[in-house]
Every structure is written in C-alpha cells, then in structure tokens.
Simulated assay, not measured.
Amino acid sequence: MAERQINPLLKSALEIGPVLVFFVAYLALKDRVFTIGGEAYDGFIVVTAGFIPLMLACTGLLWKLTGHLSRMQVVTAVLIVVFGGLSVWLNDERFFKMKPTLIYLLFGTALGIGLLRGESWLRTVMEGLMPLRHEGWMILTKRFTAFFFGLAILNELVWRTMTTEAWVYFKTFGLTAAVFVFFLAQGSLFKRYGLEQDES
C-alpha cells in the first residue's frame, strides 16, 4: 500500500519527538533515584521506561496516519522494546546503550548480504527519495554498509568509555549529526549518478 502523505512537521515530530523527550527528561531526572517496589532505579532507567511506550505510541500513530512503516522503523521499535525492556527489567542501563550498536550491525549486515548477491537492498528502501542509476546505488550501498559498521563501533566506544550523560548527548546529537554529514558528503555521487542528469 502506498504511503499517505501527512504534514512534514507532524511526521518529523512523530519520528524525532520521542528522542528529544528522552533527552529532556534525562537531563531533568539524571541525578534522581526512584524507589519502586523496594528497588532503587536511577533517572536513566526511569526515563527509559517512559520512552518505550512513547516511542511505540508515536510509531503506531505514524503508521495509522501514513499507512506505512519502513523496515528500519519496525526493527528499531522492536529493538527498543527488547533492549529497553531488558534495561528496565534488570535495572541495567547497558542493554539500552547497546541498542544502537545492534541496529547498525543489523542494517550493515543486511546491506552487505545484498551486495554479495549483487543487489542494492538500500535501493528498495530509498529509491523513491533518490533516483539513481544502478552503479550509483551499488556505490552508495557500499558506503552505507561501511558507515553503519563504523557507527556501531563508535557507539560501543562511547558507551563503554564515557559517562552515561556523555552517551546521551552522543546518541541525541552526535549520531544525528553523523548521518547529516554523511549525506552531505554524497553530493557528488548524487550528481554523477542521478537519473535526472541522465535524462537531461
């Protein structure tokens, strides 16, 4: 089923809003400890517990409004439930911090498998956004594969060697900036292999 178009600001709010709410809530509660059922939970765990239903609600609303969710959105939602749930259940923030690593490893591996088959599975997901020739898709897919693996390694380095607060800043702003810079760096590829240029 084709994706229904909705207000771009609303779509962005549903996609990015939960992450920003998590960030703000963490800053407000990071130094507090909550005793629930006789067990002490720090602010990070409590905020994670609230983030899971918020993310699911926004994802569900996005699906209801557009009639479509990407594979990336579905996988992300599932991993948030699994790893966020483990962090809350076991009162161990490490599981939630590992979530981005696993997401990037899964996407990198999936794209790598497609490349081994001589296919660009990235094209299946993004062709409507960026019409490219086959050669362009293959090059972009190779770059995305390396990029995802690089982000997985970077996330591991940050959460294992830095404070929780530093990781939250990195997750909220650092990873977003990395994706933005990565796309900017592909400008020459889009110009060289774009279908519009071929047709002109």
Rank of each mutant, 00 (worst) to 15 (best):
L116D: 05
G84R: 06
L195F: 00
G128I: 00
V78A: 01
D31P: 02
T66M: 07
L189P: 01
L65D: 02
V88E: 10
F96A: 09
L132I: 03
A177P: 01
A28R: 13
S120Y: 03
T76C: 02
F22W: 11
I103L: 15
I139Q: 12
T76V: 04
E39A: 13
R192W: 00
A25S: 14
E15S: 14
A13S: 06
Y169C: 03
F51W: 09
V33K: 15
L129A: 14
Q73V: 04
M98A: 13
W167I: 07
M138W: 11
N91S: 12
R117H: 09
V46P: 01
M130I: 15
F51T: 06
T124N: 11
S70G: 13
A25F: 14
T76E: 08
D42C: 01
E135D: 15
A25K: 12
V81D: 07
T59V: 00
A2T: 10
E3N: 05
T141E: 08
A178L: 04
G128Y: 10
L195Y: 03
T145G: 07
R143L: 15
V158E: 12
L10I: 03
K171M: 07
A13N: 05
G112A: 14
F170V: 01
F107S: 05
Q197E: 05
W121V: 02
R71M: 12
M138F: 09
L61M: 09
W89M: 10
D92H: 10
L157M: 12
G118A: 08
G84I: 14
Q197T: 12
K142M: 07
T66K: 04
A57L: 15
F183W: 03
K97Y: 09
L184Q: 11
A40V: 01
Q186N: 13
V125L: 14
L157G: 07
A166Q: 06
V33E: 15
V125R: 09
L189H: 02
R32Q: 12
W159L: 00
K97V: 06
G118E: 04
S70M: 11
R71I: 03
Y169G: 08
R192D: 07
T101Q: 05
R32G: 06
L140S: 02
K142S: 12
T59Q: 03
T176V: 10
L10Q: 14
V46T: 00
V46F: 15
I45V: 13
A146K: 11
P100D: 06
L151Q: 10
G43R: 13
M1D: 04
T163N: 13
L195G: 11
L132W: 10
R160Y: 12
V81P: 08
E127I: 10
T109F: 08
A177Q: 03
G67T: 00
I153D: 06
T145V: 05
T59D: 15
G17T: 00
G112L: 02
I113Q: 01
E196Q: 05
L69M: 00
W63V: 04
E119P: 05
M98C: 10
F95Y: 12
T66V: 09
D31N: 06
L27N: 10
E119T: 03
P8V: 05
F170H: 14
Y193E: 07
T76K: 00
L9S: 15
Q5R: 14
F183V: 09
L29M: 15
L106Q: 03
F148D: 12
I153W: 08
